[in-house]
């Protein structure tokens, strides 16, 4: 049975009508047409769908919409206002820190969340913040370099 849910996504107020068990990821991708969060596993084990929910990094694929109601969601599209890029996104472009790019949205969300809390992380802190994100192409070290470079810019 469909129900109405209200939440804030990337700074805007949204209202969706859907089954309460529908995942936040599905709502973002299909109802709100925000395709940046990717489906990887559906059970929160890979990080491709990571978003911020009230400032915490969560797997949107196994977050039912009922549990996100009334909360604030930030996706990769909302890390910076409008068409701007967040410093960590600019650093990823500078470092060419991607191959296929499928895991990158979730990694950017993890990285931006880290930098918001700790503007000057050391390498160990970056690695720990990203350890729930999987990458199969093997760009982990480029990603770590990019996050450290972004930290230097934002400091």
């Amino acid at each position: 049975m469909k129900q109405a849910f209200e939440l804030t996504v990337n700074g805007g107020h949204v209202r969706v009508e859907t089954h309460p068990d529908t995942s936040l990821l599905h709502v973002l991708r299909e109802e709100l047409d925000l395709k940046g969060s990717r489906f990887g596993c559906g059970v929160g084990l890979c990080g491709a769908c990571f978003v911020q929910l009230d400032g915490q990094v969560v797997a949107s694929c196994d977050t039912p919409i009922w549990s996100a109601a009334g909360k604030t969601v930030v996706t990769v599209e909302g890390l910076a206002p409008g068409d701007e890029l967040h410093p960590v996104q600019r650093a990823f472009l500078d470092e060419q820190a991607a191959q296929c790019g499928y895991c990158i949205s979730g990694i950017l969300v993890s990285a931006a969340t880290l930098l918001a809390r700790n503007p000057a992380p050391d390498e160990q802190a970056v690695v720990e913040a990203l350890d729930r994100n999987l990458c199969r192409c093997g760009v982990q070290r480029r990603v770590v370099r990019a996050v450290l470079a972004a930290a230097e810019v934002t400091e």
């Binding site: 395709k35 996706t75 060419q96 991607a98 990158i104 950017l108």
Partner: peptide
Amino acid sequence: LPDKIAGRPRFIHD
């Protein structure tokens, strides 16, 4: 990469 890093639709899934 600009599309992929900005989170724009790019993949067949999109």
